[in-house]
Amino acid sequence: MRLTTGLALLLWAAAASPAAAATVAEGAAVAPGGRILSLGAAVTEIVFALDSGDRLVGADSSSIYPPDADRLPKVGYVRALGAEGLLSLSPDLVLATEEAGPPAAIEALAAAGVPVARVGEGTSVAAALARISAVGAAIGKDVPATTLRAGIERDLATLAAAMAAAAPARPRVMFVLSAGRGGPMVAGTGTAADSMITLAGGANAIDGYAGYKPLAPEAAATAEPEVILTTTQALESLGGADALLDRPEIAATPAGRARRLLAFDAAYLLGFGPRMAQAATDLARALHPGLALPDLASAPGAP
């Protein structure tokens, strides 16, 4: 019968799938706390910053920094994970941001006896520092985590002190996340970009809404941004700085007329990971070119 022939073909295709190659043999002897599976870019970066990147056996698809993280086996979008895929990596510990899910997949890990440490995902300095401590505690790196935290706090304090001393005018900055057909997606309050602009001594030009929204041309005009801030990834997909600056919504603004555009790597600028003090200082330097800012003591290295 035709139907059975077709389905037999399908069975064969399933049997010949590359699944076998992707599965991991069981029984590898790993000490408890050894193999770590990281779900969330912020968590992954902290694990590397705590010199434990070699213990990672997998990560979600957003974990692309540092470059070594990008080479890890990927378990997919952090909100649509499959429990068995996670288990197939035989982790001894799963580090997951609060957003990791669906809940059934995370619950299944616990059912299989794999400890799961959930970590907050806020984009404020306090949340970022708490995240470092939590990851450090979970992977037995409390001391390095404390050291990392202290370095970041010191750097941020240095930056804040320098800004307070110079008390420069706070330029109005508009952050453009992406620019599709519906107008540029621009950051309002409560976003990682908003926090970063504030840390770097700027003022978010948009304070009328929270989150990311497409910008209407009139709204852009009334916002009067002096600087356009964006990510290198957004510029790449747009095809260069001119493509963004020449958009009608942008061209008419003070920033557009002065062609003042800044671009940083998205994860660096918005990740609120171990490099956040560095990123804030870099942004501050770019926003206040006349200001002499001290070099950072702790810098784990900009991208």
């Binding site: 389905l7 399933a14 799938s17 590359p18 699944a19 997998g58 499959g82 068995e84 895929g85 996670l86």
Partner: peptide
């Protein structure tokens, strides 16, 4: 049958992702 088979593939083709 179709959904069971499709899900078996969904779980394995891109493993460990889905």
């Amino acid at each position: 049958s179709l959904l069971m088979g499709a899900d078996a593939l969904a779980r394995t083709l891109a493993a460990p992702a889905e």
